[in-house]
Amino acid sequence: MSDQQSHSQGEAKPERGKVEGVGRDKIKGVFSTQTVEKVGTGTTQRKAIQKTYWFCEEGKEDLIQVQPLNKNYVPSGPSRAVAKEEFLGKFNPEPEFYVQTVYPKMRELENTIKRGEDHREAGRVYSAELEFKEATTVDEENVRANFGLGLTYLDRGDAVKANDIFERLVNLEAAFDQEHKHLFNDFGINLRKNKMLEQALEYYHRAERLEGHDENLFHNIARVYYELGDLEHCVEYLKRSLQLNPGMEEGKLFMEYLKKNGYVTVLPDGTEKIDPNPDGIVGSGKGKGDGKPIDVDGGAKF
């Protein structure tokens, strides 16, 4: 966040922790940067110092991840990497501000999200909704809070509100980070199960552009295409999934189902024939087996 008021915090060191295998402290805490801006015109013009606060944490290869604080004093929005040498020259530690204000706010937000997740897991969807809404009020772009709120709406079958959350999440790159993959997977599967198939497909393809190669992601894209009746793309993505992981049990079951019910036929020359309507009944959406769609989702990665 930015303001015109400076904080006199002394020269205490920011929170630090040991860098594994190196034996030195790593950077973590709240820091500030300052810019000088001209205010007014003519004889009334003066210079004002604009201070911006950041939550900063040292990562790998001497890069510092910096994320701005929002008006509620919690890290929010996209982070960026700053080279350590540049960071040390431009960023000033604000240890007291971190300890007295920012850290308690971060803990409070974390506890609110955790209560929401506990409520949702126990089936208390309205209590979960209240907690997640409170969390998104503090940090509108918080990934866990948005996922939690979206999943809660999907649990309730509220497609309209779930779609609002989908629109928000699909534009948040942080939603597709490694640390959020299990949440991402749950949300995509629940979109599909709530028959929000186009949204689920857009969601998964957004992940595909960022992730590139993941057998569980490809498997779940195949599931959506299957339910949309697009067997060619279904088989394409299922094969891509099994190429990455030939031993994936869910993928093998899915392919066996498609072959058993006549959607995929192996010809004498070894080629495969794809038939989206093996019974010859246009629009039936059923195979010539028991007619029950397979219900096997990909693993927790996606």
Rank of each mutant, 00 (worst) to 15 (best):
Val224Ala: 12
Gln45Arg: 09
Tyr237Gln: 00
Gly262Asp: 07
Lys133Leu: 11
Ala200Ser: 09
His219Arg: 02
Lys28Ile: 03
Glu236Gln: 13
Ala83Tyr: 05
Asn277Ser: 13
Val160Ile: 14
Leu238Thr: 07
Phe31Gly: 03
Phe184Ile: 01
Gly21Lys: 14
Glu208Tyr: 12
Glu167His: 09
Lys161Ala: 13
Val125Tyr: 08
Ala135Ile: 01
Leu63Asn: 09
Glu227Met: 14
Lys51Ala: 01
Leu151Cys: 03
Phe97Pro: 00
Leu242Ser: 00
Lys301Gly: 07
Gly42Cys: 05
Val264His: 06
Val235Phe: 15
Lys13Gly: 10
Gln65Phe: 14
Pro246Tyr: 13
Gln34Val: 12
Asp290Ser: 06
Gly287Trp: 14
His182Asn: 03
Asn194Lys: 13
Ser2Trp: 09
Glu108Cys: 03
Lys301Val: 07
Tyr53Leu: 10
Thr41Pro: 00
Ala162Trp: 10
Lys105His: 15
Ile294Thr: 05
Gly188Ser: 08
Met248Phe: 15
Thr101Cys: 06
Val296His: 09
Asn220Thr: 11
Pro276Leu: 09
Glu94Met: 15
Ala128Met: 05
Ala83Phe: 05
Thr33Phe: 09
Gln50Asp: 09
Val99Leu: 12
Tyr98Arg: 00
Arg240Phe: 10
Val30Leu: 03
Pro68Gly: 07
Glu141Val: 08
Pro75Gly: 00
Lys161Trp: 05
Arg209Glu: 07
Asp164Leu: 14
Phe97Trp: 03
Ala162Val: 12
Ala145Trp: 07
Tyr103Cys: 02
Gly262Ser: 04
Ile281Val: 13
Thr44Lys: 15
Leu258Arg: 11
Ala48Trp: 15
Glu58Trp: 09
Lys273Arg: 13
Val74Tyr: 04
Pro246Asp: 08
Val22Asn: 01
Arg206Phe: 01
Phe31His: 03
Gly157Met: 01
Val296Ala: 02
Glu20Leu: 03
Lys26Gln: 06
Asn245Gln: 07
Asp3Val: 01
Glu85His: 02
Glu61Gln: 08
Ala159Val: 11
Val19Ile: 14
Ile27Phe: 02
Leu217Ala: 02
Gly247Gln: 14
Met248Pro: 02
Gln5Trp: 03
Phe302Gly: 08
Gly77Val: 05
His182Ser: 14
Tyr203Ala: 09
Trp54Arg: 02
Asn216Asp: 06
Ile281Tyr: 05
His213Cys: 03
Leu169Tyr: 01
Gly262Arg: 10
Phe176Ile: 06
Phe31Cys: 05
Glu94Ala: 07
Ala222Lys: 04
Leu130Arg: 12
Asn277Met: 05
Leu130His: 02
Gly59Ser: 10
Asn70Tyr: 11
Leu172Tyr: 14
Gly291Glu: 04
Gly283Thr: 04
Leu88Phe: 10
Gln178Thr: 14
Thr136Lys: 07
Ser32Phe: 09
Glu129Gln: 12
Asn185Met: 10
Leu201Gly: 01
Arg16His: 10
Asp186Ala: 15
Val36Trp: 08
Gln65Ala: 15
His7Gln: 10
Ala200Ile: 11
Lys71Cys: 00
Leu149Ala: 06
